[in-house]
Design a protein around this nucleic acid. Structure first.
Lengths: 130, 130, 130, 130
DNA sequence: GTGGTCTAGACCACG
DNA sequence: GTGGTCTAGACCACC
């Protein structure tokens, strides 16, 4: 599992890391039940502080993507991960709305917008199958 | 033009304000050429800091949504506003990608996702016509 | 609002602090909408690190006991705080069960146990009214 | 005696084990004088570390739930087990208080709270008789 | 001034 | 060895 962090980005490192781990799970690069590096090991590998990795792990645990096994350490949730909850839909809507407003204001049609989304979906699927 | 700011939100006020002005333009509540309050006036009305309004106006000006005349004050761009530039598309893709990854990981299909987007588009259109 | 921390206790400081703030809210010593000290100020007053206070505040925010207002800083949730959710009931049950098992095993009757609970409830009520 | 350990739980394994043995005694699944597996055997059966079982046994011995004979091995205390001591009451109060404070703060009445406790007591009794 | 993030280095409980 | 907690000190965005 290759991680690339952009230290210049305005997106916090712990979030970049979170998203890339989720991507790994989404594309199947990280299988259910698979072990993740220990906070210390991962931090060293990535050249960041252990607390930053810890924060990422805590968020992922909270969302149900990973579990902290007392013997195996951190593992990808072997059962089904988090689903589309009511809470998640609300959050998604909140995040999506301002983006769509700006797209709309710039004259983008909903078809064009959906096409972009579909394209990203397809990329993920291909990665998963590839 | 009614503005509602959420001081509890983790979205900065200057961004909330920016999005709502863009929404006003998108839905036609703010017509091209229409005047916006002065920085000072707006800040007082909203009960926020003068610098915050300033930051919002600067961003909107930079994107081409508004014009700042030395004499006429701040007005909505009377000509056509910003379009779908290459740069904008890149940014949109960057913002959309992590959201779609998580949606995908939670088992949401691209059809479901597109449906949510379409719905938001329709809401905007209705507001514009209503 | 007087806080007493036991640095020898095996209960983490951030949890001790959390419980005492909740107690303050429960007994009315902290009114809805009232401000709490800034992380730095509070940390200094208590002689602990700012991150510890931060962790406490984050937990309380997550549970809905407090809000982080961009202007006023940290305040007690002015609207109704968190309620008895399904999730909370599950957690309560999980925490209560082992305690009751041991009490049962030591020959304590459910009447005796309930009496102790009721007593604690009454203490809280009196504090709230007093 | 069936033991189920949750390696994902934030409750240490040695405590989970302790509670389940106490529950066995409480419900009569473990009779006074009955033998418990040796540390080594138990650890192997449960797939956990030998030290973990040891720690559990030490705690149970300390509380008077079990006896450790040099020759007979580990047995459930054949005489009456631990009672409601002054010390135990203090500890119980200390553990119960923060839980009740939060329940109170969430608007739970002492009747509702007692009902939950009573329910757990009844479950135990039924298990004991069943 | 505020909270949010990151780093560095330490100790502890658990297994 | 692991994760959890705490400290100390720094920089940043926001207001």
């Amino acid at each position: 599992m290759l991680i690339h962090l952009d230290f210049q980005s305005d997106i916090p490192i712990y979030l970049q890391l979170k998203m890339q781990i989720i991507e790994g799970i989404a594309t199947g690069k990280l299988k259910p039940g698979e072990s993740l590096p220990s906070v210390r090991q991962f931090a060293e590998d990535l050249g960041i502080n252990l607390h930053t990795v810890n924060k990422t792990y805590n968020l992922l645990k909270q969302d149900g993507f990973i579990l902290v096994h007392r013997q195996k350490g951190v593992v990808v949730n072997p059962d089904e991960g988090p689903k589309v909850t009511e809470e998640y839909l609300t959050q998604l809507h909140t995040e999506l709305r301002p983006m769509i407003i700006e797209a709309f204001c710039r004259g983008m049609s909903k078809e064009e917008f959906n096409k972009i989304c579909s394209q990203i979906f397809l990329e993920l699927k291909e990665k998963g199958e590839g």
